[in-house]
Structure formats: structure tokens, C-alpha cells
Computed example of a mutant assay.
Amino acid sequence: MPVRVVESSAPSQVAGQDASNQHALSPACSLLSVGRAFSGTQNVSSLQKDEAWRVNVRIQGCDLDHGYLCGTMEALNVPLADTPVVTFWEGEIVDMKNYTFYTGKWEATPENDIKHWSKFPAFSSLLSQVEADGGKSLDLSNYPYIFMRWKEQYFVNVGTDCGLTIAGFYYVCFSCSDGSINGFYYDPNSSPFQKLELKFTNEDRSGFTFSSYQLQ
């Protein structure tokens, strides 16, 4: 949710891209499941000033077989908003069966994809294969990281005049070992490489909770 006031109505398409490839993610990654919560920051600094927002994320749905997940994202200290801003997002899991490392939409070129994925150290060992054939020959079933794209669909509790844009999307890297999440926001009209850093939150132990929102 970067600082550019733009309304977006572009829907996310959840559809298979390479159904013939049977590589799939291991279902053993229990930290990526419905109800899991994460907390951290998004750096929205610009040339004019340094700024970071506190961010909470909760997974509302997850279907590994179809490479799909969805959830809510809450930004707490947005300067132009009187209340925390909550958005609903849908995600694509890069599993080489449903989705590959190449986005193919949302104004992202293959060059943009490689540039953003390469920001994650966990991607370095995959780079040469992705450049060679798009990564179609990779088997990510036992890889300790899960790569995703998150696309915010709409604002849950505020209007589009809240001072934020949801025109872009996030490149995301999820660690199966500790549930940590790193991401970079891509929108050609926003500050580049806005970094998202989240940690898994054990609600039972920490008492961390979200406000309740009804999703339409």
C-alpha cells in the first residue's frame, strides 16, 4: 500500500498457466495456512523523507493445489488516514504448475520480474534456470522458501480517497522454517522496491489480535 493516490479496479485472475507440469509445493509448510498472522513494517521511503508503516497480515484462504491464497493487510500509521487502512489481497504461489516466476500482467515485464525476484537471496540459486526456461524444469516441492505475488483487490474499511494506491502488487518470499516474509512492491508510478518485512505471530502466546472486518 504505497503513497500514491490512485484507484485500481484491475481484478486478479486465478487460473492455471502450465497444467501439464506436475511440480507442486509440499503441503508440510504449516506456517502458510488459514488464520496465520504476521506483523512487521513496509518501508515507503522516498527521496524526500524516510518513512515506514506498521503492517499486519492475516491469511484468510489457502489452496496450495491451485497455487492460490488470500488475506487481509492492515497498515496502522498511514499519515493521511484517520484509521488503520485494511485491504483484501489475493495471491499467486509460484509452483510451476499454476504460476511461474513470470507475471505476465500488472505492467510487469520479464525484466521487472527478474530484477525483483533477484532481490531475494533465496532466489539466487534459481536464477540461471529461470533465465534459461522460465524455471519450468525446477522442482520446488522441497524448497525451503515459497515465492508468491500478492495483489490487493479492494479497500475493506475505507474509501479510495484514503491516500493510498493498490494499483501495483507485491513480489513475496516466504520462509517455511520460521514463517518470515519479505516482499517488494512493484508499481511503475510509485517509489521502487518498497520493502515489506513481516514475522510470524503466534497469537496464542503473544496475544496479538486483528480487528474484525467482514469481507464482501
Results as ranks from 00 to 15, higher is better:
I93W: 01
A52F: 08
C173N: 09
Q42M: 11
S190E: 05
S180G: 09
S124H: 14
G134L: 12
S8F: 01
N77K: 12
D65Q: 14
D139T: 07
L64Y: 06
C162D: 04
G91V: 01
T165D: 09
G61W: 07
L76R: 07
I181A: 00
L64E: 02
G61P: 04
L215P: 09
L140K: 09
A28T: 05
L164C: 10
E152Q: 08
K49E: 06
T109R: 14
E131P: 04
R149T: 05
E131A: 07
V14P: 00
V5I: 05
S9Q: 02
F88L: 06
E51H: 13
V156Y: 04
I146V: 02
P79D: 03
N182Y: 09
G135I: 12
N98L: 04
P2L: 02
E152A: 13
D82H: 12
E92Y: 08
A15Q: 12
G61H: 14
M148D: 06
Q17A: 12
G91I: 04
K97I: 02
V78Q: 00
F169T: 11
Q13C: 01
S212Y: 11
F169W: 07
T103V: 03
W150N: 13
P110E: 08
I59V: 14
E203N: 09
A10W: 02
L138I: 08
Y170W: 11
H23T: 12
I166T: 04
C176R: 12
G104H: 05
A28R: 11
D187L: 11
R205P: 01
K97L: 01
N202D: 09
V94A: 10
P192M: 11
P84M: 10
V5Q: 05
Q13K: 02
A15V: 07
A132T: 03
V130R: 14
P2A: 01
N157Y: 13
Q60D: 15
I114F: 05
C62G: 01
S141K: 09
K119G: 07
